[in-house]
Design a protein around this nucleic acid. Structure first.
Lengths: 212, 212
DNA sequence: CGCAATAGTTACCGACCGGTCACACCTATG
DNA sequence: CATAGGTGTGACCGGTCGGTAACTATTGCG
């Protein structure tokens, strides 16, 4: 029970004097909260973790949390935006890895997404939030829709640049394959359909004339 | 507030005398609870609705609910089994619609699933439960895994009967397409990739040599 | 009829939830 | 040194949650 309370207060004053320069100066409370909330929402679900537990895990307290975020829903939105921003870097890395070669980028997309499937078996935070937050008009829905639409548009663009005929249908297919692989991975595990995500994607791309 | 409390108690005694035979004798409490819980879990999420609200919506009370189900988790499992059983009837209907013609059944599967996408925009109850219930060892996970595995095996069998080469990969692909279409439909709406679910499936089947 | 099983009612419990308050604390800057 | 702003602390609030107890009402069946 009390194991979770490891090291909390008077950390700055004590450590700053005893350990001297223990740099890597830990992030500001707000950043710690967002990052920690991200993890805990993933582990327990948005409804499955309380703001008090989040604050404690972030080595701060509920009052500070509410000074930075107006409500739990607000915090949820910020964590989803946080995840979205990290996803944006993925596309940049893809382009620098295969500059100018859209088809190679497409195959790289498949490979990278397959890696995500094994590295992050919890699925997509945004999609999971969409499943969990049924309340109509919840502010998170806008964040989710923007993110998912943007991700899909990037894929549509990539398929178009690769010169594939019916590029939009290919992008739709690949989007559904990824989304389905993630939820299948979560529901049945590694031995389900998601095991053949790469083969399915490659076969699909080839059937669209992407072999050349 | 009190609008929800429409007609509750002394229904049997009063109505039986006044209205005479108002048959269609409403289901037993247990069945009403399971059916109602199914709907409410869909609308608000499993964690988003309380047992008290479920009992009231089922025109009974919490005490009766707990006489039939050991806990809320138990009720959750029963509702998931209930949904699973209804899904089994789907496959029978598919076979009677196209007896002996596996390829026609496969195309019928696509069509029927597309219909589900528009009729039931909330996605798959079992998959949603898998997303929402993160607790390790939750009894629902076994129900979900059994159901998803069984559904996929039926599809594998169907693809095999249709004489498609690489039938298992085709089944995997179609499974992921369906699962992805449902979550995409839920996250982005009707204009997302799920809009082209049928075209994606048909193109996939054709590319596997299923056109003959 | 009389009995047993099922169902309804009310109240209650402890735990936890999101959110707020008042107040003490620390640290950087002037 | 003094001041101000961000931070930590603990108590508190009303509400809701899952689950239980005790008692009454109703029903079906021998």
């Amino acid at each position: 029970m009390s194991i979770t309370t490891v090291q909390k207060n008077s950390k700055r004053s004590a450590d700053a004097k005893s350990e001297g320069d223990c740099r890597e100066a830990r992030p500001a409370p707000r950043d710690r909260i967002v990052s920690t909330a991200c993890d805990l929402f993933r582990q327990h679900g948005i409804r499955g973790i309380g703001v008090d537990a989040i604050a404690e895990a972030a080595e701060t307290n509920k009052m500070t949390l509410y000074r930075h975020f107006g409500s739990k829903d607000d915090l949820v939105c910020e964590t989803l935006k946080f995840t979205s921003q990290k996803a944006a870097a993925f596309w940049d890395a893809l382009e620098t890895a295969h500059p100018g070669d859209a088809m190679a980028q497409l195959h790289g997309w498949v490979k990278a997404r397959a890696q995500c499937l094994t590295d992050e078996p919890y699925g997509c935070d945004l999609a999971n939030a969409a499943v969990e937050l049924k309340e109509q008009g919840h502010p998170a829905h806008a964040v989710i829709e923007n993110f998912k639409t943007a991700q899909h548009q990037r894929l549509v663009l990539l398929c178009g640049q690769a010169g594939v005929p019916q590029s939009e249908l290919l992008a739709d297919t690949l989007s559904m394959l990824l989304e389905g692989a993630r939820v299948s991975r979560l529901a049945i595990g590694t031995d389900g359909p998601s095991a053949h995500f790469v083969r399915a994607c490659e076969a699909t791309i080839a059937s669209f004339g992407g072999a050349r």
